[in-house]
Nucleic acid binder design. Sequence first.
DNA 1: CTGAAATAGTGATTAATGTCACTGGTCAAT
DNA 2: ATTGACCAGTGACATTAATCACTATTTCAG
Lengths: 187, 187
Amino acid sequence: MQELLRSHIEKIVPLTDKEFELVISHFTVADFKRNHFIFEQGEKVKHAYYIISGLLKLTYVDDSAKEHIVSFAMEDWWESDFYAYFTQTKAAMSLKCLEETTVFCLSLNDYQNLCRDMPKMESFFLQKAHLGFIGSQQRILSLLTTNARERYEQLLQQYPALLQRVSKTQLAAYLGVSRETLSRLHD
Amino acid sequence: MQELLRSHIEKIVPLTDKEFELVISHFTVADFKRNHFIFEQGEKVKHAYYIISGLLKLTYVDDSAKEHIVSFAMEDWWESDFYAYFTQTKAAMSLKCLEETTVFCLSLNDYQNLCRDMPKMESFFLQKAHLGFIGSQQRILSLLTTNARERYEQLLQQYPALLQRVSKTQLAAYLGVSRETLSRLHD
DNA sequence: CTGAAATAGTGATTAATGTCACTGGTCAAT
DNA sequence: ATTGACCAGTGACATTAATCACTATTTCAG
């Protein structure tokens, strides 16, 4: 299981056995059942999570109790409410398991120590942050330029496996349309 | 003018005079007139830009020739098509001056050398990348959860100065609504 | 096995927004 | 001063998507 994290990191920076030992010592493992909230809106965000297996959704529930999905996160992804994590403030979003999920947990302290003691890891996180930023910007572009149907088709093309794993209702909450509209897109 | 960049960096990491000299040696200065394209869709993206003064827009023109604004960038901001910049591929977006603008330019090579030679600067860029990612995610949330009017009000609250500097047409292209709809929001 | 909850589809209606067409105003270059 | 480009507003209408209501299936915990 640790090997998953190792090869994930080594896609960007090579590590000796010794170095990886140091890295892994900063993480803890956790396992969550389906439908479990890792954290909820208003709670403190203790960790950033690297997902070993399973599927999470990062959601925001608005005033009228409607749920919006900011992102899905699956195997080999990092997820958290990063604003709340880095600023140590209350979560604006919730992180919930759509499947039973196993993660590596990294507290902010451990993150900072790791960066301080291992410049390599700081490079790694920098790369990850860039990729996250770029991905978000593409999502913005998609929301600005395309309608419900096109976004749905883009999503299916990019993550065909997702359709097997989450309900249409969830997909609609991610795409920013009502589930009824999504249901009518075949016409 | 260099002092602007210096204090910008020092908000996150302190620098000695010597260190700042090294930093600044990686940048060049450029000045662009209103309406000048720093780069256009399909071109190579040579630099990331730190804005000293002026105002830029990062835009995408779709198949039906409609312009969408991914972001405005003003004094004290970084901007580029970061995907194209980091991967050294053709720009998917254009970067255009809405006002006469002065920038510090950083090539990818200089960026990489700077990170390699000065871990402090890597920390700095990591922070910046996190903030960029968080900002984008909040924009996504805004697009998912709010209608045209609410987005407009959010924008005015966050950047009241922007209304003085860009046309309503531009704001509409940023908010993701037609300029006519934006124009009717007073009702 | 069984009943409650979640899910998907669809018709009818309403609300929000886009599109097209036109007006008048401002500004800058000739 | 005149012209052309850009800009903001608005009426009329079309289109898209949201909402509400209902049905039928599927899933899953007890």
